[in-house]
Amino acid sequence: MNIFFRELKANRKSLVIWSVCMALGVLSGMSKYTAYSGDNANNGVLNELPRAFRALLGMGDFDVTKMSGFFAFLFLYLELAAAAHAVLLGSGILAKEERGKTAEFLAVKPVSRSAIITSKLCAALVNLLVLDAVILISSIAMVAAYNKGPEINGEIVLFVLSLFLVQLIFVSMGTLFAAALKKPKLTGPAAAGVMVGSFVVSEITNLTDRLDALKVLSPFQYFSYSGIVRGDGLDPLAVSLSLALAAFLLWLTYFCYRRRDLNV
Protein backbone atom coordinates (compact mmCIF):
# COMPACT_ATOMS: atom_id res chain seq x y z
CA MET A 1 0.00 0.00 0.00
CA ASN A 2 2.86 2.39 0.75
CA ILE A 3 4.08 2.31 -2.85
CA PHE A 4 0.53 2.91 -4.04
CA PHE A 5 0.10 6.05 -1.92
CA ARG A 6 3.59 7.26 -2.77
CA GLU A 7 2.76 7.01 -6.48
CA LEU A 8 -0.57 8.77 -6.04
CA LYS A 9 1.25 11.60 -4.37
CA ALA A 10 4.07 11.67 -6.90
CA ASN A 11 1.60 11.86 -9.80
CA ARG A 12 -0.77 14.31 -8.15
CA LYS A 13 0.60 17.44 -9.77
CA SER A 14 0.70 15.98 -13.25
CA LEU A 15 -2.83 14.63 -12.83
CA VAL A 16 -4.12 18.07 -11.86
CA ILE A 17 -2.46 19.60 -14.92
CA TRP A 18 -3.86 16.92 -17.24
CA SER A 19 -7.32 17.28 -15.72
CA VAL A 20 -7.33 21.04 -16.15
CA CYS A 21 -6.12 20.71 -19.74
CA MET A 22 -8.77 18.10 -20.53
CA ALA A 23 -11.54 20.24 -19.07
CA LEU A 24 -10.24 23.23 -21.02
CA GLY A 25 -10.08 21.04 -24.13
CA VAL A 26 -13.72 20.09 -23.72
CA LEU A 27 -14.63 23.71 -23.05
CA SER A 28 -12.82 25.17 -26.04
CA GLY A 29 -13.94 22.31 -28.28
CA MET A 30 -17.58 22.69 -27.37
CA SER A 31 -17.48 26.45 -27.70
CA LYS A 32 -16.87 25.96 -31.41
CA TYR A 33 -20.06 23.96 -31.76
CA THR A 34 -22.10 27.09 -32.47
CA ALA A 35 -19.94 27.67 -35.55
CA TYR A 36 -20.73 24.22 -36.90
CA SER A 37 -24.39 24.02 -36.02
CA GLY A 38 -27.40 26.23 -36.07
CA ASP A 39 -28.04 29.07 -38.40
CA ASN A 40 -24.61 29.40 -39.84
CA ALA A 41 -24.32 28.78 -43.50
CA ASN A 42 -21.30 26.48 -43.47
CA ASN A 43 -23.07 23.32 -42.28
CA GLY A 44 -23.94 22.34 -45.79
CA VAL A 45 -20.39 22.96 -46.92
CA LEU A 46 -18.95 20.76 -44.19
CA ASN A 47 -21.13 17.85 -45.14
CA GLU A 48 -20.15 18.17 -48.80
CA LEU A 49 -16.40 18.09 -48.23
CA PRO A 50 -14.66 15.11 -49.87
CA ARG A 51 -14.69 12.06 -47.65
CA ALA A 52 -10.91 11.79 -47.41
CA PHE A 53 -10.67 15.38 -46.28
CA ARG A 54 -13.34 14.87 -43.66
CA ALA A 55 -11.52 11.77 -42.50
CA LEU A 56 -8.29 13.71 -42.14
CA LEU A 57 -10.04 16.28 -40.00
CA GLY A 58 -11.39 13.45 -37.89
CA MET A 59 -14.99 14.01 -38.88
CA GLY A 60 -15.41 10.72 -40.71
CA ASP A 61 -19.05 9.93 -41.24
CA PHE A 62 -20.28 12.09 -38.40
CA ASP A 63 -22.87 14.76 -38.97
CA VAL A 64 -20.98 17.48 -37.13
CA THR A 65 -23.89 19.86 -37.30
CA LYS A 66 -25.69 17.67 -34.78
CA MET A 67 -24.50 17.53 -31.19
CA SER A 68 -23.87 13.76 -31.15
CA GLY A 69 -21.83 13.93 -34.35
CA PHE A 70 -19.93 16.98 -33.22
CA PHE A 71 -19.12 15.42 -29.88
CA ALA A 72 -17.79 12.28 -31.58
CA PHE A 73 -15.59 14.53 -33.74
CA LEU A 74 -14.33 16.38 -30.67
CA PHE A 75 -13.91 13.23 -28.63
CA LEU A 76 -11.38 11.82 -31.08
CA TYR A 77 -8.97 14.57 -30.00
CA LEU A 78 -9.75 14.01 -26.33
CA GLU A 79 -9.04 10.35 -26.90
CA LEU A 80 -5.68 11.12 -28.49
CA ALA A 81 -4.70 13.30 -25.55
CA ALA A 82 -5.92 10.73 -23.00
CA ALA A 83 -4.00 7.99 -24.82
CA ALA A 84 -0.84 10.09 -24.67
CA HIS A 85 -1.41 10.59 -20.95
CA ALA A 86 -1.96 6.85 -20.41
CA VAL A 87 1.08 5.67 -22.33
CA LEU A 88 3.38 8.21 -20.64
CA LEU A 89 1.88 7.45 -17.24
CA GLY A 90 2.45 3.73 -17.72
CA SER A 91 6.00 4.00 -18.93
CA GLY A 92 6.95 6.73 -16.47
CA ILE A 93 5.55 5.18 -13.34
CA LEU A 94 7.70 2.10 -13.76
CA ALA A 95 10.74 3.52 -15.55
CA LYS A 96 11.23 6.42 -13.19
CA GLU A 97 12.91 4.24 -10.56
CA GLU A 98 15.64 3.41 -13.00
CA ARG A 99 15.71 6.83 -14.61
CA GLY A 100 16.11 8.53 -11.24
CA LYS A 101 18.39 5.74 -10.00
CA THR A 102 16.06 5.04 -7.11
CA ALA A 103 15.72 1.39 -8.13
CA GLU A 104 18.56 0.66 -5.75
CA PHE A 105 16.40 2.06 -2.98
CA LEU A 106 13.06 0.50 -3.84
CA ALA A 107 14.14 -2.89 -5.15
CA VAL A 108 16.12 -3.82 -2.03
CA LYS A 109 13.06 -3.35 0.17
CA PRO A 110 11.33 -6.53 1.27
CA VAL A 111 8.84 -6.41 -1.60
CA SER A 112 8.74 -8.51 -4.73
CA ARG A 113 8.98 -6.94 -8.15
CA SER A 114 5.45 -8.13 -8.85
CA ALA A 115 4.18 -6.30 -5.78
CA ILE A 116 5.95 -3.15 -6.99
CA ILE A 117 4.26 -3.39 -10.39
CA THR A 118 0.85 -4.12 -8.86
CA SER A 119 1.00 -1.10 -6.53
CA LYS A 120 2.13 1.16 -9.32
CA LEU A 121 -0.55 -0.12 -11.68
CA CYS A 122 -3.25 0.50 -9.09
CA ALA A 123 -2.01 4.06 -8.67
CA ALA A 124 -2.01 4.51 -12.46
CA LEU A 125 -5.55 3.13 -12.59
CA VAL A 126 -6.73 5.68 -10.06
CA ASN A 127 -5.13 8.40 -12.18
CA LEU A 128 -6.99 7.17 -15.26
CA LEU A 129 -10.29 7.02 -13.42
CA VAL A 130 -9.89 10.55 -12.10
CA LEU A 131 -9.04 11.87 -15.55
CA ASP A 132 -12.01 10.03 -17.05
CA ALA A 133 -14.31 11.43 -14.39
CA VAL A 134 -13.08 14.92 -15.30
CA ILE A 135 -13.69 14.25 -18.97
CA LEU A 136 -17.13 12.80 -18.28
CA ILE A 137 -18.31 15.57 -16.00
CA SER A 138 -16.93 18.42 -18.10
CA SER A 139 -18.38 16.84 -21.26
CA ILE A 140 -21.83 16.44 -19.79
CA ALA A 141 -21.76 19.97 -18.44
CA MET A 142 -20.44 21.60 -21.61
CA VAL A 143 -22.70 19.60 -23.93
CA ALA A 144 -25.70 20.59 -21.82
CA ALA A 145 -24.63 24.22 -22.11
CA TYR A 146 -24.53 24.20 -25.91
CA ASN A 147 -26.98 21.48 -26.85
CA LYS A 148 -30.25 22.53 -28.43
CA GLY A 149 -31.26 19.10 -29.71
CA PRO A 150 -31.90 15.81 -27.86
CA GLU A 151 -29.64 15.11 -24.87
CA ILE A 152 -26.74 12.72 -25.44
CA ASN A 153 -25.63 11.87 -21.89
CA GLY A 154 -25.98 8.15 -22.55
CA GLU A 155 -23.67 8.43 -25.55
CA ILE A 156 -21.16 10.45 -23.56
CA VAL A 157 -20.98 7.72 -20.93
CA LEU A 158 -20.33 5.16 -23.67
CA PHE A 159 -17.66 7.36 -25.22
CA VAL A 160 -15.85 7.63 -21.89
CA LEU A 161 -16.24 3.91 -21.23
CA SER A 162 -14.65 3.10 -24.58
CA LEU A 163 -11.95 5.64 -23.81
CA PHE A 164 -11.21 3.90 -20.53
CA LEU A 165 -10.64 0.60 -22.34
CA VAL A 166 -8.33 2.31 -24.83
CA GLN A 167 -6.45 3.91 -21.93
CA LEU A 168 -6.06 0.51 -20.30
CA ILE A 169 -4.39 -0.77 -23.46
CA PHE A 170 -2.06 2.21 -23.63
CA VAL A 171 -1.14 2.29 -19.95
CA SER A 172 -0.19 -1.38 -20.07
CA MET A 173 1.71 -0.79 -23.30
CA GLY A 174 3.60 1.92 -21.43
CA THR A 175 4.47 -0.34 -18.51
CA LEU A 176 5.55 -3.05 -20.91
CA PHE A 177 7.98 -0.67 -22.60
CA ALA A 178 9.37 0.27 -19.20
CA ALA A 179 9.67 -3.39 -18.21
CA ALA A 180 11.15 -4.66 -21.45
CA LEU A 181 13.53 -1.94 -22.60
CA LYS A 182 16.97 -1.92 -21.07
CA LYS A 183 17.53 1.80 -21.42
CA PRO A 184 15.11 3.60 -19.08
CA LYS A 185 15.54 6.89 -20.90
CA LEU A 186 14.19 5.39 -24.10
CA THR A 187 10.95 4.03 -22.68
CA GLY A 188 8.96 7.27 -22.68
CA PRO A 189 9.83 8.30 -26.25
CA ALA A 190 9.47 4.73 -27.55
CA ALA A 191 6.06 4.21 -25.96
CA ALA A 192 4.83 7.63 -27.13
CA GLY A 193 6.16 6.84 -30.61
CA VAL A 194 4.18 3.63 -30.83
CA MET A 195 1.10 5.47 -29.59
CA VAL A 196 1.44 8.16 -32.27
CA GLY A 197 2.18 5.45 -34.84
CA SER A 198 -1.05 3.67 -34.01
CA PHE A 199 -2.91 6.96 -34.35
CA VAL A 200 -1.41 7.47 -37.79
CA VAL A 201 -2.45 3.93 -38.74
CA SER A 202 -5.93 4.78 -37.53
CA GLU A 203 -6.03 7.90 -39.71
CA ILE A 204 -4.83 5.95 -42.74
CA THR A 205 -7.50 3.29 -42.31
CA ASN A 206 -10.06 6.09 -42.13
CA LEU A 207 -8.97 7.36 -45.54
CA THR A 208 -9.70 4.17 -47.39
CA ASP A 209 -11.71 1.00 -46.91
CA ARG A 210 -9.12 -1.20 -48.52
CA LEU A 211 -6.78 -1.20 -45.50
CA ASP A 212 -9.35 -2.26 -42.92
CA ALA A 213 -7.17 -5.19 -41.88
CA LEU A 214 -4.75 -2.64 -40.40
CA LYS A 215 -7.40 -1.54 -37.92
CA VAL A 216 -6.36 -4.33 -35.64
CA LEU A 217 -3.04 -2.51 -35.14
CA SER A 218 -4.65 0.60 -33.76
CA PRO A 219 -6.60 0.71 -30.50
CA PHE A 220 -8.05 3.99 -31.80
CA GLN A 221 -10.07 1.88 -34.24
CA TYR A 222 -11.39 -0.72 -31.81
CA PHE A 223 -14.51 1.22 -30.93
CA SER A 224 -16.69 2.68 -33.62
CA TYR A 225 -17.71 6.19 -32.69
CA SER A 226 -20.23 6.28 -35.51
CA GLY A 227 -21.70 3.13 -33.97
CA ILE A 228 -22.08 4.90 -30.64
CA VAL A 229 -23.64 7.90 -32.39
CA ARG A 230 -26.05 5.58 -34.23
CA GLY A 231 -27.07 4.11 -30.90
CA ASP A 232 -25.44 0.68 -31.38
CA GLY A 233 -23.67 0.87 -28.01
CA LEU A 234 -20.27 -0.75 -27.46
CA ASP A 235 -19.40 -3.84 -29.45
CA PRO A 236 -19.04 -6.66 -26.87
CA LEU A 237 -16.37 -8.29 -29.02
CA ALA A 238 -14.33 -5.06 -29.06
CA VAL A 239 -14.74 -4.74 -25.29
CA SER A 240 -13.52 -8.27 -24.61
CA LEU A 241 -10.69 -8.04 -27.12
CA SER A 242 -9.50 -4.76 -25.58
CA LEU A 243 -9.57 -6.23 -22.12
CA ALA A 244 -7.74 -9.32 -23.35
CA LEU A 245 -5.09 -7.22 -25.08
CA ALA A 246 -4.56 -5.09 -21.96
CA ALA A 247 -4.33 -8.23 -19.83
CA PHE A 248 -1.79 -9.75 -22.21
CA LEU A 249 0.36 -6.60 -22.20
CA LEU A 250 0.21 -6.56 -18.40
CA TRP A 251 1.17 -10.18 -18.18
CA LEU A 252 4.18 -9.46 -20.39
CA THR A 253 5.04 -6.51 -18.14
CA TYR A 254 5.16 -8.75 -15.07
CA PHE A 255 7.00 -11.43 -17.00
CA CYS A 256 9.73 -9.08 -18.25
CA TYR A 257 10.14 -6.96 -15.14
CA ARG A 258 10.45 -9.90 -12.79
CA ARG A 259 13.37 -11.46 -14.55
CA ARG A 260 15.39 -8.57 -15.76
CA ASP A 261 18.43 -6.81 -14.37
CA LEU A 262 17.58 -3.39 -13.04
CA ASN A 263 19.66 -0.49 -14.25
CA VAL A 264 21.40 0.85 -11.21
Binding site: G100, T102, E104, F105, P110, S112, R113, V264
Partner: peptide, 20 residues
Protein backbone atom coordinates in the same frame (compact mmCIF):
# COMPACT_ATOMS: atom_id res chain seq x y z
CA UNK B 1 12.19 -14.74 -1.23
CA UNK B 2 12.17 -10.95 -1.34
CA UNK B 3 10.90 -10.90 2.25
CA UNK B 4 14.36 -11.89 3.59
CA UNK B 5 15.44 -8.36 2.72
CA UNK B 6 13.51 -7.04 5.70
CA UNK B 7 16.53 -7.95 7.81
CA UNK B 8 18.93 -6.26 5.42
CA UNK B 9 20.08 -2.65 5.51
CA UNK B 10 21.88 -1.46 2.40
CA UNK B 11 23.89 1.64 1.81
CA UNK B 12 24.65 1.97 -1.91
CA UNK B 13 27.85 3.59 -3.09
CA UNK B 14 25.96 6.35 -4.83
CA UNK B 15 22.87 7.54 -3.08
CA UNK B 16 19.89 8.64 -5.17
CA UNK B 17 16.45 9.46 -3.86
CA UNK B 18 13.23 11.02 -5.05
CA UNK B 19 14.24 14.66 -5.46
CA UNK B 20 10.88 16.18 -4.67
Amino acid sequence: HPEVRKEVGYLPSEVFYYDG
